[in-house]
C-alpha cells in the first residue's frame, strides 16, 4: 500500500490543489480581464476570454502604489535586520545556557508572542505617539519586531546548538578573539538559519496588518502596503486593490517557492515542538 499510488489520491490532490489555487486565479482574472467580463457580469466567467494590461496601467496612474510598497520594503528590511541584530546575540547566549534555563527563556518568549496583537498595539501606538514615532517607518518596524523576534531567536539558537561545541573552543585555542570567532567560524556555519530567520521576519513584516494599521493609520501614502490596500478596499476601488494585491504578492510567492524546503513545521511553530 505505501508503495502503490492509489488513483483515488489524484481526486483528493486535484480537489485540494483547485481549492488552494482558486483565490490566485480570481486575483488574476480581476487584474487582467477587462472589467466588462468581471464586474460587468453578475456571474463572472471562470476563464479569461480577453487579457488586458489596462487595469494595471490605469491603477498605477490613478493611485500611489509605489509609495506604500517602498515603505513596506523599508519596514521589512528594518524588521529583518533588527531581528538579526537582536536575535543573533540572543540565540548565541541562550544556546550557551543549560537546556533547562534556555527552554524557559524560549517558552517565555513564545508565551509573550501569544499576546493579542490588538491589545498590545493600542498602548504601543500611544507610547509611539509621545515618542513621535507614529506614522513613521521606524515606528511600524519597531512594533512589528515584536512579532518576529521570538521565532528569530528560536531559529538562530537552534543553529548555534547544532554546531559541534568544540568548534568555538578550537577557534579560541587557535588564538581568535570573540569577534573573529563569530565572523569567521560561527556565523558562516549558521548562515542557513540566519537566512531563514531573516526571510521569515521579512515576510511577516511585509504581510503584517494589525500593528501597521494601529501605529500608522490610514494615510495611504504614509503607511505600508497592507494598510494602503485596506484603504483602497474600503473605498471600493477593486481594480486598484487587485493591482496592489498582485504586485505585493509576487515577491512573497517567489520567496516561498525558493525557500520552500526550509519551511518546516517545527521551525514555524517555534519552540513548542520538541
Amino acid at each position: 500500500m505505501p508503495n502503490k499510488t492509489n488513483p483515488l489520491i489524484y481526486i483528493v490532490v486535484l480537489a485540494l490543489a483547485l481549492l488552494f489555487f482558486y483565490p490566485f486565479w480570481v486575483l488574476f482574472l480581476i487584474a487582467f480581464e477587462p472589467t466588462k467580463l468581471t464586474f460587468g457580469l453578475i456571474y463572472p466567467l471562470q476563464f479569461p476570454l480577453e487579457i488586458t494590461l489596462t487595469n494595471i496601467v490605469n491603477s498605477f496612474n490613478q493611485v500611489d502604489l509605489l509609495g506604500p510598497l517602498m515603505r513596506s520594503l523599508e519596514v521589512a528590511f528594518i524588521v529583518g535586520g533588527l531581528a538579526l541584530l537582536l536575535g543573533i546575540p540572543a540565540g548565541y547566549g541562550i544556546a550557551k545556557l543549560t537546556a533547562r534555563i534556555s527552554n524557559k527563556i524560549i517558552a517565555f518568549l513564545f508565551i509573550i508572542n501569544m499576546m493579542p496583537g490588538l491589545v498590545i498595539a493600542i498602548p504601543i501606538s500611544l507610547y509611539f505617539y509621545s515618542a513621535h514615532l507614529e506614522n513613521t517607518v521606524l515606528g511600524v518596524a519597531l512594533a512589528q519586531e515584536l512579532v518576529v523576534l521570538p521565532l528569530t531567536v528560536f531559529i538562530i539558537m537552534g543553529g548555534f546548538r547544532s554546531l559541534p561545541r568544540d568548534l568555538e573552543n578550537q577557534a579560541r585555542v587557535d588564538g581568535a578573539p570573540l569577534s573573529s570567532t563569530f565572523a569567521r567560524v560561527l556565523l558562516p556555519l549558521i548562515r542557513v538559519p540566519i537566512l531563514i530567520a531573516f526571510i521569515l521576519s521579512w515576510m511577516t513584516s511585509w504581510d503584517e496588518f494589525t500593528y501597521a494599521f494601529i501605529v500608522a493609520p490610514i494615510v495611504p501614502t504614509d503607511s505600508t502596503f497592507p494598510v494602503a490596500l485596506y484603504n483602497y478596499v474600503t473605498r471600493d476601488l477593486p481594480l486598484q486593490s487587485a493591482t496592489f494585491a498582485l504586485v505585493a504578492t509576487v515577491p512573497v510567492i517567489v520567496l516561498v517557492v525558493v525557500f520552500q524546503k526550509y519551511l518546516k513545521g517545527q521551525y514555524l511553530s517555534g519552540g513548542l515542538i520538541g
Binding site: 483565490p23 486575483l27 496588518f209 485596506y230 510567492i253
Partner: peptide, 8 residues
C-alpha cells in the same frame, strides 16, 4: 498561501 498577506 502561507506567504500571502491576510489583507490580500
Amino acid at each position: 498561501p502561507f506567504g500571502i498577506s491576510t489583507i490580500v
